[in-house]
Amino acid sequence: MSDEQQAPVPALRPREPWQTGYWGPTNPDEHPAVIAVRQRFAEAFEEAVTFRDEMTIRVKREALREVVAFLRDHPELRYNHLTDLTAVDMLNLRDEPRFDVVVQLYSIPRRQRLRVKCGVNDGETVPSLVPLFAGANWLERECYDMFGIVFEGHPDLRRILLPDDWDEGHPLRKEYPLRGYRDYVQPGFERPAPRVRGSLPRPRP
């Protein structure tokens, strides 16, 4: 290394630890992605919120693919990396819609993150992002597996982490008990282990 001996320059730390600026301006009205999406998708855009420096755009689910494609292909935004795609079951937090599909985008050239959300109810479908990002394939499959959200246009939507013949539903839903629905017969135990929290029956001597 040529400049190995160079003394490191301590960078200026932001005032609050979370204020890193990696998510762009904290004011939604100044954020370029928010401005652009609001302008382009006037009816699909729902809201833009900031928490801890992180910008989240909420859009209508029918427009999710168009919005993400727009963010990807916009020459000044270029959110070209789909970091993550997951869902949150909002059962205990609100009535409608049931789930939030959360898409974390990242722009490698601009070094900026963005979160795009859309709400979806049980039985509704979300447009798949696979035509935009090949990496959405398994993420959407996992999302389907864990929440039962169907992604329309996914080429190969089947369970991924659970077995293909899993018939107990989708485990990351809030109403799914931690130990599953069914009694689990354990060898050596007098009666099946309950699927609720509590003490397990002791094995017979």
Binding site: P131, F133, P155
Partner: peptide, 16 residues
């Protein structure tokens, strides 16, 4: 079975 790779789905649009 990389069904989703861009050439199979969207050949005209380069991703990056």
């Amino acid at each position: 079975i990389s069904l989703a790779h861009p050439r199979g789905v969207d050949p005209l649009q380069p991703v990056a």
